[in-house]
Design a protein around this nucleic acid. Structure first.
Length: 405
RNA sequence: GGGUAGGUGCCCGAGUGGUUAAAGGGAACGGACUGUAAAUCCGUCAGCUUAGCUUACGAUGGUUCGAAUCCAUCCCUGCCCA
């Protein structure tokens, strides 16, 4: 089966500039393609992960991915889909974020023996000369047309700076540069990148009269159209320091029934027959599919050992089997005995404030060793911890194990 | 540079001297119901030493017994004009 159809079947593809030609291209030659990632944070998140999956599928099929890190474009900020201008980042931060991205990407893509490349567009964008750029590239862009681009719509209502307006041009330039340097013929990205991608495709076709193609991915949204990958703490990060493997696992364990099949297709390598079988499960049975999803995704991102631990912790907490060792654990100091439980938990970050803790107690949302706490001034005693520590439950499904430090 | 409309809690957005920790909506959180799902219903949603106090309506200063609300200066944003 052609990789293009494979990606399509798995649910990746949203739009393509030239569907049939892209399919032929994959058939005929080893294609060099790229996805750009702007270093806006010090870790990748699930949205990026989906792009990595698409890259991995294509790499398996023998094509060559380029991960383009936006060290140059990151200084501008993509206005697509944003309502406000991004905060400008300092060069040091961008630098740091780039290196974080790089480390994480190496998990998913094989960069050995030139099988994939990682490049930073700061390399060429920084050197650009304004006048030359205007003459060589600027002449090929129609402002009238750019203004009609979907990605600027929102910003035209609220204000768009010239700086950000140029983002599209930089991205188009990247594509052309990658074509010249590495023979890159295809740019991919999230569907919000469509305008930017066709800008590049058109630039290359016009200026160089060369074939260039673009492809966008479905955005990872819930069946209700909300962006996926949001947790109460913000994004769902791939960095285990920012989102623990346990929380990561739980996120996928808890997706809505209607989203399971889509997630399995996009975020795991399970064969599609299996994906469809799991996705078709009904009622209680679909929990099986969610377990598979959570395990597989966690395995890809954090490795098998961490996935195993997260799964065991979940089993222990929710089915009462397996050991509690891998449950998120807080260390209690001896001087904490005699202090208020709420104070200790607040200090450990379980609550963002004592008020939140008190509220939770008032609303029957906190328990210690399966016993509801009804007194906000409840004192933590040594006997609460017993031999194996204590188990705190916050809300319906957040657990913390307390052990002696 | 000139004119004009604005800057309110996580977000949107009402409020135009005291009854305003600030309507309404969204997000989020807790409870009930469940399948660690969705939908629904109820509740919560600044902090603290919690029936009391402190901090909050772009920033700073002022008027007043009392200001998010009035005045001054400054910063920022949209729109129109140059």
């Amino acid at each position: 089966m052609n990789v293009y159809d494979e990606l399509k079947e798995r649910g990746f593809i949203a739009q393509a500039t030239h569907e049939n030609e892209i399919r032929d291209l994959f058939e005929k030659e080893k294609v060099t393609f790229y996805i750009g990632f702007d270093p806006t944070a010090d870790s990748l998140h699930v949205g990026h992960f989906m792009g990595m999956m698409a890259m991995a599928h294509l790499q398996k099929a023998g094509h060559r991915p380029i991960c383009l890190i936006g060290g140059g474009t990151g200084t501008i900020g993509d206005p697509s889909g944003k309502t406000d201008m991004r905060k400008m980042m300092t060069d040091e931060i961008i630098e740091h974020n780039c290196s974080c991205f790089k480390k994480q990407m190496e998990r998913f893509i094989d960069f050995s023996e030139d099988k994939a490349l990682m490049v930073n567009n700061a390399e060429w964008l920084r050197k650009l000369n304004y006048i030359d750029l205007l003459r060589d590239v600027g002449a090929h862009f129609s402002v009238n047309r750019m203004l009609t681009a979907e990605c600027y719509k929102q910003r035209l209502e609220r204000g768009l700076t010239f700086l950000e307006f140029n983002y599209m041009i930089m991205q188009a330039y990247d594509f052309m540069e990658l074509g010249d340097r590495y023979g890159c013929k295809l740019e991919m990205g999230g569907d919000d990148q469509w305008s930017n991608i066709i800008a590049g495709v058109e630039l290359i076709r016009r200026k160089q009269a060369k074939a260039a193609f673009g492809l966008t991915f479905t955005l990872l949204t819930t069946s209700e159209g909300k962006k996926m990958g949001k947790t109460e703490k913000g994004a769902l990060w791939l960095d285990p320091e920012k989102t623990s493997p346990y929380d990561f696992y739980q996120y996928w364990r808890n997706v809505a029934d209607s989203d399971v099949e889509k997630c399995l297709g996009l975020l795991t390598f399970l064969p599609m027959e299996e994906v469809r079988r799991l996705g078709a499960l009904q009622d209680q049975a679909i929990n099986e599919a969610k377990k598979v999803l959570a395990y597989e995704v966690t395995k890809l991102v954090h490795g098998e050992a961490e996935a195993e631990k997260a799964q065991q912790a979940a089993e222990a907490l929710f089915s009462g089997q397996g050991n509690l060792e891998n449950v998120p654990t807080l260390e209690i100091r001896s001087e904490d005995f005699g202090a208020k439980l709420i104070d200790v938990l607040t200090r450990e970050g379980v609550f963002s404030s004592k008020g939140e803790g008190r509220r939770l107690v008032q609303q029957n949302g906190l328990s210690l060793n399966d016993e509801r706490i009804s007194d906000a001034d409840r004192i933590l005693t040594e006997s609460d911890l017993g031999e194996d520590g204590a188990l705190v439950k916050k809300g319906k499904k957040k657990y913390y194990r307390l052990v002696r430090a």
